[in-house]
Design a protein around this nucleic acid. Structure first.
Length: 254
DNA sequence: ATGCCTCAGCTCCTGAGA
């Protein structure tokens, strides 16, 4: 079973690239973030023609997530039960016996801002929900755009970006707290190239200079960890014309 | 430089992203 996550930064703009990528990478499950479109504009038909059932949780202008799967997804849940949120950030479902959660974590803008406080509250709400989900669904994958780096290895300039957004100790505390629930950073279960990032700034030739961050993650539960056979970031779509600023991340389970 | 690039929208500028 192959699963992947990709922040597409507007599905309207990126749909052809997503379809091309799925043709080359026929994963079983793909979660998408930053659709930036409403449900009525979601291209369900195009995904159906590509062999995918799709569930959308859209929103105008910002946010918006979707879950695509080759076999039908059941028990679809939108956002975090028990955490009131105006923004469309989470979609989860059961696929082939695995609980899949796709998330677009808040950006947070800057430490000390209202948006940062919202990010902290959102992370707490997510954690409490995922803790319960792990009890009822031991085989669980939590993946998406976390907007948090684990440590300096995920940052192209750890000195210059120390304590800036995505790199603060408060954010990393919440990420470690998620891991402590019984989850594992799938990418680091395997050797990776130095400076493996999943996002590069559009400005200043960020991708060409590999000035990036690893903020898109796939976390697998204790029960799934022994089944993980590979995990990788696919940089190739970042070389497209008009690319998303994020690259997809893939994991393979036995 | 509170910028640089990209996207959406109350679209020819602004807010937000990361």
């Amino acid at each position: 079973m192959k699963l992947a996550t990709w922040n597409v930064n507007s599905l309207t703009v990126r749909l052809p690239q997503v379809l091309d990528w799925l043709a080359s990478n026929p994963v079983d499950v793909l979660v998408l973030q930053e659709l930036k479109l409403t449900d009525d504009k979601f291209p369900a038909q195009a995904f159906a023609q590509a062999g995918y059932a799709a569930h959308c949780f859209g929103q105008k202008t910002y946010n918006g997530v979707a879950l695509l799967s080759r076999t039908p997804a059941t028990e679809v849940v939108r956002n975090i039960p028990g955490f009131a949120d105006d923004m469309a950030r989470v979609i989860s479902a059961e696929v082939s016996g695995v609980r899949v959660i796709g998330g677009y974590f808040p950006n947070g803008q800057a430490p000390g801002s209202d948006k940062f406080e919202y990010k902290m509250n959102w992370l707490k709400g997510l954690r409490h929900w995922v803790r319960a989900e792990l009890v009822s669904h031991p085989k669980l994958v939590l993946m998406g755009d976390f907007n948090i780096t684990f440590d300096d290895a995920d940052v192209w300039d750890p000195v210059g970006l120390k304590d800036t957004i995505h790199c603060t100790e408060e954010e990393r505390y919440h990420l470690r707290a998620l891991i402590s629930l019984g989850l594992h950073d799938a990418l680091r279960l395997f050797p990776q190239p130095e400076k493996s990032y999943s996002w590069w700034d559009y400005r200043d030739f960020g991708f060409r200079r590999n000035h990036g961050l690893r903020i898109d993650h796939i976390l697998v539960s204790n029960a799934l960890k022994p089944l993980v056979t590979s995990c990788a970031i696919d940089r190739t779509p970042r070389k497209n014309e008009r690319p998303s600023d994020h690259a997809p991340v893939l994991v393979e389970l036995l």
